[in-house]
Nucleic acid binder design. Structure first.
Lengths: 230, 230
DNA sequence: GCAAAAGTGTTCTCGGTACACCCATGC
DNA sequence: GCATGGGTGTACCGAGAACACTTTTGC
């Protein structure tokens, strides 16, 4: 083996694409950078990985610092390591995406990472610092596939929701429009939803029924190798 | 930003799961390690990434040193970064898998990486150095999914092949048995195969027709967003 | 002639898709 | 009463799955 010291000169970061869903729009949390490089530009929340910290732990740490939430869905997506992607040296970043309920998260946390944090529509993406736009697109594409094998509504919707809200979520992620009757037929036939026998209140039209996910049934399915597909 | 020097102490490597297909068996190239740690154990070919080298370039370099082949299919899969995965320090590895034609590759290259290199059946996996068994399984699972969206026969089979060979390839990757008639119906209906009007010679049974892939048609399909699925 | 693998069609079932009208509420 | 979104069923089509016998070669 060569002189190892030559190789122990790199740094690792994690960057986190935090998705949320708000009415009809898929959103992502971006920070406004308050330090160089790329000062004042929008970018993904992320940070260096400490020497004694696992990659996943670092991703959870960043997520916790930004959102104050634990126990959220988190998935590693891809690692970006172009030589010149970071002006300060060789920095390789491992990209994660996570799914949070926008309304469980009431206010932005005080954070050493960033002062300004805000939600942005995925459909109206701006230029971001570093290669963060590439990273965001890679994570969005992963989410589009993940939605077919994991019931992402568990993570992105409030505990009680209507079927129309659920449909809008799928439409926002997949960037398609779906037929209302076919969507309902399919989603109800999976038996993962519980009719709460409650309805919306205060809406200026016929109030919709509220549903929740049946987590136990989902876990029983997956334990038996069931493959959730929309 | 903190004192950056504290973070530039990690090393990263690439590890490469090189798949090949031989008659009826999916194989993977493993090296016998001739240095500590894990001396004399089997492991994946891999190496440190140089400071001025992109991740993908490093993976191609390792592949070239091991197989002598260029222009092969290569895909990043997942990054493994547990704190204690490498005894020499903090080493994070980016796992890739690649697909090669076993018979284009006649002999193992002289290499600084390893002296003994050999093919092993994926179906009879042993324990490997480091966390390489986890890495191999992650890459195998990725291949199982990839096979539904990419015609892997392009990469793993010789230029001329029989339908039975192609079927055996899919059976080995997916670890299932397929119905011969249904398989042929489906694969031929995709119009990606060209009947070469030649047959096998010297076999002790009815000789099979030989086919090749039509790369142009495949590229035309993918350009139009076609989704290859078996 | 026998062993060994190649080659070939039909039927059934199920899931996907297309499609239009009445209902309950707030104002 | 009107605007707004909620809620409901049927018919068609195509893909996937199950399934058995004849053909061609080497020995």
């Amino acid at each position: 083996m060569p002189v190892l010291d030559n190789f122990f000169k790199s740094a690792f970061t994690v960057d986190n694409v935090i998705f949320g869903f708000d009415e009809a729009d898929l959103k992502v949390l971006l920070i406004k950078r308050n330090e160089e490089p790329y000062k004042d530009m929008l970018g993904l929340p992320g940070y260096f990985v400490y020497q004694n910290e696992d990659l996943d732990s670092a991703a959870y740490r960043v997520l916790m610092e930004i959102t104050g939430l634990r126990h959220v869905y988190l998935e590693q997506v891809e690692t970006f390591g172009k030589v010149d992607r970071h002006p300060s040296g060789r920095v390789i970043t491992v990209a994660y995406f996570s799914l949070v309920k926008i309304d469980e998260y009431n206010q932005f946390q005080p954070s050493s990472i960033a002062e300004e944090i805000s939600w942005h529509s995925v459909s109206k993406l701006k230029n971001l610092a570093f290669d963060h736009k590439d990273i965001l697109l890679a994570c969005f594409n992963r989410l589009k596939r993940r939605v077919r094998t994991y019931p992402v509504g568990f993570e992105l919707l409030p505990p009680k929701f209507t079927l129309t809200e659920l449909q809008h979520l799928y439409e926002a992620i997949l960037e398609v429009t779906l037929d209302k009757r076919n969507f309902r037929k399919k989603i109800l036939s999976m038996n993962l939803l519980v009719d709460l026998k409650e309805t919306q209140e205060g809406v200026a039209h016929r109030p919709a029924r509220l549903y929740k996910f049946d987590k136990q049934k989902y876990e029983a399915f997956t334990a038996n190798g069931y493959n959730f597909e929309l």
